[in-house]
Design a protein around this nucleic acid. Structure first.
Lengths: 236, 236
DNA sequence: GTCTATACCGTGATAGAC
DNA sequence: GTCTATCACGGTATAGAC
C-alpha cells in the first residue's frame, strides 16, 4: 500500500517510539534547543532548518507543520518518562500487593520524580528540556497534543490517581485528584525553573540544580499531600 | 513641553496608574481577552484592532509594540493586586508588632491569596485574566516586563520573604525563599487553571471555581510551608 | 521516497500624508 | 491623533529535481 507521507507516526495504541530518519532527527535536535531557549512561537522554521543544516521544506515533509513538529519534539522526551513512571509504579504496586512494602505517598511521588530527575541530568536525552517543554504545554493550549496525550497516556493518570488514593486513605476521590493536580504542578514548574521570584529579579534560589530542586520540592509536596482532609475539618 | 509620545507610561518610581485614552482602553480590553484565550503570539494585532474598532496603527502609536502592549495589559491588572497585597501586609505587620495577632504563615499566605481571589471574582477588573496572564509570564520570557517588575515591585518580594521568614522561624533564608517560590507557583498555576490532569483529558477537578481552588490549594500550600526543615533532618 | 527552490498570504512594524 | 501604504519576515504549500 502506498502511504502518501511518513506523517507524524503516532501509533494507534499505546506509546511507541517512532523511527525517524537522519534529517528528521537533526530537525528534532535543533528544534528542541530552540523551542526551550526562545519559546515555540519565537523560533522560526528557517532558524531551525538553518541550524540543522537542512532545507526549509524538510520540516513540512517529515512533520506536517510547526505545531506537529513541536508535538514530536515533546513526545520524544515524554514517552521515555511515561514508560519509566509506569515501570516504577508497576514495581511499587507489586511490592505493595506482596506485603513487602506499604504503598506510601512518598513512594508514589518518587516514582515520577525519579524518572524526571534522571532525565534532567542526562544531556543525551534532552536534559532539562523535557520538563521545560512540559511546563509550556501546561500553560499553552496545544489542542492536537492534548488529544494525543489523552489517547496514549490517559491511563497513566488513572493509575496514579488510584495509587495515590490507596496511599492516602480517608480522602475523597475529588480530594485525591486535587492533590495530584497540585503536586504534579509543583514538580513540573519547579523542575522547569519557572520561579516567580525570578520575575521580580530577586531569585537567590539556584533553581537549576535538579538535586537541590528535589531536596526542597519533595518534602513540600509530601507535606501538602498528607495534610488533613479539607472536607472534614478536625472538629467533626 | 512637547512630549513626543505617550509611550508606555511606566512611572519612574513605584507603582502608578497610567491614564489611558479611550482608544487605548478599548485596545487594552480587546487585547486582554484575546491574549488569555489564544496566547500572546497567536493573537494578531489586526484581530485586536478589529475587535476594538480602531485602526491597526493605533496600537503602535499608543503603545510602542506588541510586546509593550502585553506588558501594559498585564500591569493594568498586576498593579492593583500588588497594591492590595502590600496593604494587607502592612496591616498584618502592624498587628504583629502591636502584639494583637501573631504573624502566622496562614496570615501571610492569605494576604496575597485574598486579593487574587477578589480579582478572580470581579469581572470588571478582568476576572481570572490576571492570574492566567501571570502564569504565562512565569513560563514565557518577557524580558522587558521582567525589568519593569524588578524595578517597580522588587520590594514586594523582599517584604514577603521577610514576613514569611518571621512566620516560619528556624528556617534558613534559602529555605524560606524556596518555599515562597513553591507556594507562589502553586497559587498562580492553580488559579490559572493550569491542570496537568487536563492535559491527559482526565480532569474531574473543576479548576475554575475560585473558592474551590482556595479551599484545596491553601491547606496544601500551608502544609508545605510549615513542613520541617530539609536542612536539619529530624535525627540531628 | 527524499530533497530543493520558490511562490503565497498573513504578520508586526514604520514612514509619511492628512 | 489618525490613517494608508509599504516593508521584511513568518508558516505553509507545491512543483519539480534526483
Amino acid at each position: 500500500m502506498d502511504q502518501a507521507k511518513p506523517s507524524v507516526l503516532v501509533g494507534q495504541s499505546g506509546p511507541c517510539e517512532p523511527k525517524y530518519s537522519d534529517t528528521a532527527i537533526r530537525i528534532l535536535d535543533a528544534a528542541e534547543g530552540l523551542f526551550v531557549e526562545l519559546g515555540m512561537e519565537a523560533t522560526s522554521l528557517r532558524l531551525i532548518t538553518q541550524q540543522a543544516g537542512v532545507n526549509l521544506a524538510a520540516v513540512n515533509y517529515h512533520f506536517r507543520s510547526k505545531d506537529a513538529l513541536f508535538e514530536a519534539v515533546f513526545l520524544r522526551r515524554f514517552g521515555p518518562w511515561a514508560t519509566q513512571c509506569l515501570e516504577e509504579l508497576d514495581a511499587l504496586e507489586k511490592r505493595g500487593a506482596a506485603g513487602e512494602e506499604p504503598l506510601t505517598a512518598e513512594a508514589v511521588v518518587m516514582s515520577y520524580v525519579r524518572p524526571a530527575l534522571a532525565l534532567s541530568k542526562d544531556p543525551a536525552r534532552g536534559g532539562a528540556m523535557f520538563v521545560r517543554l512540559f511546563s509550556r504545554v501546561l500553560v499553552e493550549n496545544h489542542r492536537q497534543l492534548r488529544e494525543t496525550m489523552s489517547r496514549q497516556y490517559g491511563d497513566l493518570v488513572t493509575r496514579y490517581t488510584r495509587a495515590l488514593g490507596r496511599a492516602l486513605p480517608g480522602l475523597s476521590e475529588e480530594e485525591v485528584e486535587w492533590r495530584m493536580h497540585l503536586g504534579f504542578s509543583v514538580m513540573f514548574h519547579a523542575f522547569a525553573g519557572n520561579d516567580i521570584l525570578k520575575v521580580f529579579g530577586r531569585s537567590a534560589v539556584s533553581a537549576r540544580d535538579p538535586d537541590l530542586i528535589v531536596k526542597h520540592m519533595v518534602p513540600f509536596v509530601l507535606a501538602g499531600l498528607r495534610s488533613p482532609s479539607a472536607d472534614r475539618p478536625p472538629g467533626s
